[in-house]
Amino acid sequence: MTRETLISLAIVLALLAIPLWATAAGETFYITLATRMAILALAAVGLNIALGLGGLVSFGHAAFFGIGGYAAGILASHAFNMEPLPFGLPGTNAMPVIWIVAIVASGLVALAIGAISLRTAGVYFIMITLAFAQMIFYFAISWPAYGGEDGLSIFVRNQFPGVNTLNGLSFFFVCFTLLIASLGLFSLLRASRFGAALQAARQNEQRLATVGIAPYRIRLAAFVISAMVTGLAGALFADLNRFVSPSMLSWHMSGELIVLIILGGVGRLAGPVAGAMLYVAFEYFLGGITERWQLFLGLLLLAVVLFARGGVVGLLAGKARHG
């Protein structure tokens, strides 16, 4: 086992330990906090596929996060009100169905956004992904059918067969299991031929093209997979808060997802998990001390970017073996 594998394992176990401790100590609030960590980590693992492996700095992943959230919110509200969706389809409160819809919807939108954005690179790519996410944000605000600016409430948390999701600990385990699955997907992708091509596209596009692989399609596939994982996290996030609003689509959310990865370590397996834990803990504890916690978050972030590149995982496990 390498040092990084050990560190990754320790980080994931630490996340698992929080709700177990909280249940034993009767501090149920910390279960919610840990669930939030797991869901944000899942969203960031998704982004890490595009950003960490592919070097695609997407500043618009909030779009997919929000689309996942709205998938959960819209399906649940139709099920709750017994109103059929267009084409006579019923709404649903079954999580597996909602997840599939969230994944498919964010994947399709990512296919469209990616197909246009990936024609460009560098700063253009950053700005265009940001602009498209903003387009969806404004659409959600001005579309009155599902709450517009006020958002949409999910009155009862959606159901998973055989699990009582109303119980905080059970819902945590649902989210945690999906997080572990996404980490499995990330390492599978990283070790696969596809992952090798994707990382080669980041490191040296010309060389990849010379061996006969077109970078565009590899990147587009990575962008879509990445969006799907983030969309799934969005559906869970809506269920955690029992509420979905355009703020899930806002560009602050996109920035936050990138921040999670940077705090944890770009392209590292457990980077997003460490980043999400650190971020949520920071938000909670500093937010308890001062209303101005974002000021200190900004200063911390500046310090990390300027002086401590590599994030938590980089600090603990040393540099990644490959650039």
């Binding site: 950003l51 700095v57 500043f59 560098g122 700063v123 950053i126 920035g255 990138i258 921040v259 940077i262 770009v266 101005r292 974002q294 000021l295 978050l297 900004g298 200063l299 972030l301 500046l302 970017v305 300027l306 590149r309």
Partner: peptide, 27 residues
């Protein structure tokens, strides 16, 4: 300090500046 860095670092550092400026102004 950011001119020689990649765009990701620039995005993050200036995003951090937004947080600092916004909260500072609100303060």
């Amino acid at each position: 300090r950011l001119y020689e860095r990649d765009h990701l670092d620039q995005v993050l550092a200036t995003f951090a500046l937004i947080l600092v400026f916004s909260e500072g102004t609100r303060w």
